[in-house]
Amino acid sequence: MSQEVLKALKVLEEDKGVKKEVVIDALIQALKAAYKKHYGQNQNVDVVFDEETGEVHVYQIKEVVDHVFDNQLEVSIEDAQGINKGYELGDQIKFEVTPKNFGRLAAQSAKQVILQKLREEERSAVFQEYANYEHEVMQGFVQREDSKYVYVNLGKVEGVMGKTDQIPGEHYEPFQRLKVYVSSVENTTKGPRIVVSRTSPELVKRLFEQEVPEIYKGTIEIVSIAREPGDRSKIAVKSNDPNVPAVGTTVGQRGQRVQNIVDELHGENMDIIEWQKDPIDFIANALKPAEVIAVQFLADDENSCLVIVPDDQLSLAIGKKGQNARLAAKLTGYKIDINPESDVEFTDDEDSNSVE
């Protein structure tokens, strides 16, 4: 048993990177518990593991006292000085109590501890590997589905995708390949728990980074995203290079770059609009494809505005079930009310907020 344990410790340290001292400490604690379980809990014991031979020795520790009340924990001063005249009251004396059959118990404990450490190390290695993918996009395939989650095989682990992270109307079939956003990676006692999403706006952002090199490099920047998963997203982009058009580059030749993302999200529409520093122009862009005549900010609420559109553009500006206006508000961060031109009388100040 001794040599087997030493070999196992060496393998753990050299192949798995688990320090020998960590395993030995865990083994000692396990052997203490095992000894007390078989030979009495009311003891103060110490276990010594010989790293050269692999042998295990158990010692019962007793305190030197005047009068013994518990012979499991105490030894009289007379008996102590019979062993060594130098002992005094309060000293701690170790008595070896290693049972004859303790080797078998030690072997069982060593096996359990080493296997446990192996499992912990494997879980830790997997966690460290997948922690690098937190807030990134990974490709996997659907493994299975139950009433709560869709389980996505990501290689060494399964990602869990809850109901709120599943795109409405999207059906998941076994072995179906799909890209997911890794929302979080947690290290649990049962191993890494990876939460993935198909509904996060960050999924759209990461997909554009993969598809558009200029976005990945930072030449074009995604300023904000408003998304209603499975239906429509609005993405505001700006260029950090005057020679690179933000919208055209993002859309790609003949719209191919955007189309690749639409295909990945199974038909979710993408509106790419140009971010503007001037909030009036930004709000007007956000409401495209509708035409905007003017944007008026309310005096009592700087985060709210009134948008004026031609009468024949009202339904387009609002969108089906209010979606266009709702996404524009999310994208810009402003509360937007939309009125047709025929309902508004312009003053000189209001006319100054017109969109050119």
Rank of each mutant, 00 (worst) to 15 (best):
I261P: 02
I283A: 05
A317K: 05
E96P: 13
P340G: 01
Q143P: 00
T164K: 13
K288T: 14
V212Q: 00
G155V: 10
G159N: 01
K320I: 09
T98R: 08
E345V: 14
S76C: 13
I114F: 12
S109H: 00
R227I: 12
E13M: 05
P245G: 03
N303D: 04
F127W: 05
V48K: 09
P201E: 07
A294G: 15
R254D: 11
N153F: 04
Q3V: 15
D349G: 10
E356A: 15
V157Q: 06
D343G: 05
P310N: 02
I273Y: 10
K62W: 05
Y181G: 01
S239W: 12
Q3M: 10
C305E: 00
E52F: 02
M138I: 01
Y133T: 12
A131Y: 13
S109I: 00
N132K: 14
G169R: 00
F346K: 09
Y39S: 06
L265W: 01
N269V: 08
E88A: 09
K7G: 14
L118D: 08
K156Y: 06
F69I: 03
N71D: 13
E63Y: 14
I24S: 01
V56T: 10
F102L: 01
E302W: 10
E158T: 12
R104Y: 13
D343M: 11
A246T: 07
Q81E: 04
E134I: 03
K10A: 13
V309I: 07
R104W: 12
R206T: 08
Q166L: 05
V97N: 02
N353H: 15
V68Y: 07
K36L: 11
F141A: 02
Q313P: 04
R232N: 08
